[in-house]
Design a protein around this nucleic acid. Sequence first.
DNA 1: ATCCGGGTTCCCATGATGGGAAGGTCAAGG
DNA 2: CCTTGACCTTCCCATCATGGGAACCCGGAT
Lengths: 161, 161
Amino acid sequence: MNGMSMNIGETARSSGVSAKMIRHYEEIGLIPKANRTDSGYRQYNGNDVHTLRFIRQARNLGFSIRQIEELLGLWRNQRRPSRKVKALALAHVEELDARIRELEAMKQTLQELAAHCHGDERPECPILDGLAAPGTVADPGAARRDVPRRLARAPKRASCH
Amino acid sequence: MNGMSMNIGETARSSGVSAKMIRHYEEIGLIPKANRTDSGYRQYNGNDVHTLRFIRQARNLGFSIRQIEELLGLWRNQRRPSRKVKALALAHVEELDARIRELEAMKQTLQELAAHCHGDERPECPILDGLAAPGTVADPGAARRDVPRRLARAPKRASCH
DNA sequence: ATCCGGGTTCCCATGATGGGAAGGTCAAGG
DNA sequence: CCTTGACCTTCCCATCATGGGAACCCGGAT
């Protein structure tokens, strides 16, 4: 079953990428259009599974589809300078770091507010007061944008074969 | 201009919430439907601005709209137990923490891969190798979901008056 | 021939947000 | 009085990666 040609379902199972996403990746041009059987079924081989695993791992590291396009290009190019790959990776580390800092700031503020709240049956609450007061919460302002979202829903593991 | 009744533009400016989002919040029922002038213009007062500031600050702390609905309910209820507010806040801290841990894990993995990459003109690259190898990247798996996304685009500061 | 587990396409939803078009309103100035 | 420009209105579309589901077609085993 793994030797040569398989349908999208098995490909999904052995790559860990859902069939839905495989079709999607094809549609947006991240992977080339699959060959079809006479009846229109997409056919894949071990090579395709390899590529899809690469994509999945990159997604798990938080790379966006755009970034993965670049990574795939470098991966396939035997003459790439590893410099470029490293630059891409470190740039992404920066993005992750920016997001982490932002979340840390939120957590920090929220914990400070919560620390002053009795948390009992009385209605007085510094947390609500803080939210209502202007200027309590720092404005995440700039220095953000561009970090790929993801991580919203679990990829719903395809139980990787 | 601030004394009584203002249009959506000024309300946006003084609350820091864009006119677009004010309409959106009304549509999804987060805030009540605004009164209209004869010609259909929405009218707001200082109270509404206060509420919108509350919402904006909660968003800046990463609360989702759903969570803000609850916070608003507690804020308006003079007989709330502060216990409930604190519980909400601490639950959100948990979510933030889960996200932070996830991002830290990605960063960690990526840094390890990058540390072994020469980053020169040669094509050998442990980063690409790691992405291609099965099982290099931990699967964020479960323990995620539900944390509100946001932070993707900067709220495009309404230069808060 | 029938059935079931595939496959296919197509449309819709998520969450919070912005962009932009087409058209109505209002106040100030000629 | 009419124009101008800033403002308002609604409506539709896009983002990003992903899943859900309908309606329909295929292929192999009974």
